[in-house]
């Protein structure tokens, strides 16, 4: 068994995709896990699950409660706290994911603002916060969960999608920055297709939903290979390639 300490941080740790990825990493030798989320009891349940699955004597798991992930000060404080002893090897940011109906958000600007803050700004705050520490160490991997909805704005979910698309540009910028600095920090954006989670359960039978375990396997494989963008399941790379490249006069006639 690998005895070298490997540290994993999950932001939005109660997310099903995040916790399923963590199960695989923990089995692959990560022995220190920090969980960030809003509800301590739920975080502890996730931690407990990972501890049992790990089965290692040297496994440790801690929980950090951040009530507002869009508040820069509390995010900074939490990140500095976590990085004090050791900078994490992987940070998986699964913050956000509020699938509100577009029509409601168009009519209510304060809800629109919170959706954009939650899905766009908050993950970027965490990514940049951890990247600062990783830069000093010269190594680390920031993984942000985006969405296929971020690839092209569509009538049904462009508020959510545009929040997520911020992660793409930000990640691209970070990769460029670290390449110029010749620093070994890696940045990956994961784009899951529709996945069966408590949030999407009402779509069962209407849309083909991927199993979260398969999505997690796909993400871990992509991240471990150092990919810049991971589509999960991978068929979404092709689907989104087609959708992105549809000419506007065709795209605007389709209700997709």
């Amino acid at each position: 068994m690998n005895k070298v300490a490997k540290k994993l941080v999950l932001v939005g740790a109660t997310s099903l995709i995040a916790s399923n990825c963590a199960r695989i990493w923990v089995q692959n030798g990560f022995n220190e896990v920090v969980l960030i989320g809003r509800d301590r009891k739920r975080l502890e349940n996730v931690g407990c699950d990972l501890a049992v699955r790990s089965g290692r004597d040297d496994f440790s798991c801690s929980c950090e409660v951040v009530c507002d992930g869009t508040d820069a000060e509390s995010v900074t404080e939490t990140i500095d706290n976590i990085c004090r002893d050791a900078v994490p090897d992987i940070v998986l940011i699964a913050q956000g994911s509020s699938l509100d109906m577009n029509e409601e958000l168009q009519q209510n600007l304060s809800r629109l603002k919170s959706s954009l803050l939650l899905n766009g700004i908050s993950p970027v705050l965490y990514a940049q916060g951890f990247a600062r520490h990783m830069e000093k160490k010269g190594a680390g991997h920031v993984v942000m969960i985006g969405s296929v909805a971020g690839d092209r704005g569509r009538s049904s979910n462009y508020v959510y999608g545009s929040g997520k698309s911020l992660l793409d540009t930000y990640a691209e910028g970070m990769r460029h920055y670290f390449a110029l600095k010749k620093c070994g920090v890696m940045v990956t954006v994961v784009k899951p297709g529709p996945t069966l989670t408590p949030m999407t359960a009402d779509l069962v039978g209407k849309v083909k939903l991927a199993d979260v375990k398969d999505v997690a396997k796909c993400i871990v494989r992509g991240v471990d290979c150092g990919k810049k963008t991971v589509y999960a399941p991978s068929r979404w790379r092709l689907i989104m390639f087609v959708i992105r490249n549809l000419p506007s006069f065709v795209f605007n006639r389709l209700n997709i």
Partner: peptide, 12 residues
């Protein structure tokens, strides 16, 4: 009441 997401281990 679908329990597919109740898939955590609690203690071993």
């Amino acid at each position: 009441l679908w329990t597919g997401f109740l898939d955590k281990f609690v203690d071993f």
